[in-house]
Design a protein around this nucleic acid. Sequence first.
DNA 1: CTGGATCCATGATGATACTG
DNA 2: CAGTATCATCATGGATCCAG
Lengths: 234, 234
Amino acid sequence: MIEAVNARDTRSYGHFCMLAKALERVGDRWTLLVVRDLLSGPKRFTDLMDRMAGITPKTLTQRLRDLEADGLVEVDRVAGRREVWYRLSPAGQDLQPALEELLLWGLRHVAEPPRPDEPAHPEHVLRALQLQLQREAVDAGSVRWTVHVRGADNYVLTGDGTRWELRIDPYGERTPDVTITATRSALARFLTTPALRDAQPQDVELAGKPAAIRTFLKAIEVFPPVAAGPAQNP
Amino acid sequence: MIEAVNARDTRSYGHFCMLAKALERVGDRWTLLVVRDLLSGPKRFTDLMDRMAGITPKTLTQRLRDLEADGLVEVDRVAGRREVWYRLSPAGQDLQPALEELLLWGLRHVAEPPRPDEPAHPEHVLRALQLQLQREAVDAGSVRWTVHVRGADNYVLTGDGTRWELRIDPYGERTPDVTITATRSALARFLTTPALRDAQPQDVELAGKPAAIRTFLKAIEVFPPVAAGPAQNP
DNA sequence: CTGGATCCATGATGATACTG
DNA sequence: CAGTATCATCATGGATCCAG
């Protein structure tokens, strides 16, 4: 008797290969982007919808259910509370090194400035900046930069000379060296377009001591890396 | 007027995020498995078909064309020769760190012994073993182990106390310390089932000096890592 | 308002067979 | 050896609607 095959079996590769088995868990469209956005902490359904412009609620629901079934995501449902919070399990958090390598590959090989109408969430731009500062071992001393963007969380990017970290900064607890205030698109343009940094565009406000701002502008020169690869525009 | 969107645009995420852009290049089903199999050197169409059991020639063709268009794969077509050889471009080879992290994640979180009928290509089992030996910094001194499997390439796994390497070994040029001869499925079972190693199953032949064989059996104790995660069998 | 569910259209993938 | 051709199926996107 032939056993019934469900959708999960159909989408499996059926190989004895650990890469194939990993991709059976996280290889579906949108799945790694869900993991990416949960790596910065628990999120609600609509938080995820905001970061993943273009995903339909149906697909996001499906991905969250799949990830939950595979043990990568845990769900906080509290009776009497409207919000449902999604967070990564330890196995889900363990994907971080793989995601960082993939992101850095994208930075090296497909980096280009944002198109005018391209949704650019601060979290994604700042994550790329943090990883590049870390990968290039940029030493700016002990610094603390905060980023304010209307309609999004505030972020704080810190360096201690050795390690760079990016966190959501809900309260702005401590005094930053530099505060960057901009819209989503202006922030993306400013950080990814070297020519704009000295021009001090009007849609990006940098607050802080002049020396601290100079340190900031110097550090972000590593970002993005020079696009060495040939563009492919058939 | 609405602009026409082609299939490529449809499948893009449209985000200013380097991870999303990376996944637009390598996020399609089967794509990273093609890259995986080209990382060990140039291959012909049928070489890839053999390693990727279950893929249809139509899909493999599509993936190779996409990868070529994106500059990750280069094609050697020589007039008057039947074979077409596919190889990775530098950008394609640069995916290696990301693939290794994903493979190691699979090894940590979804490792289980091969099912009886599960296709197990030696290259994929040995790659996982090599990465785990490297990740765990296993020091077996200077060793050279060769693997013979009927119907597949021969492989040579070498360690020098610091670095582990796996290569296809077409001619068996130098004298190995241990030679492993088995079928595909027997090799997979033997390497992934600790209980089998001392039992010396009849479908796996180990040739070499007793001390060298003991070194081999000791080293592979790190493989596979103990499955700590809970199985999900709904 | 959040957190979805439903219906339909389409395109990507799979199964199978065949060819230069 | 290196693919094509044809047909079937399933996943995803778009749009809309709904319950707490």
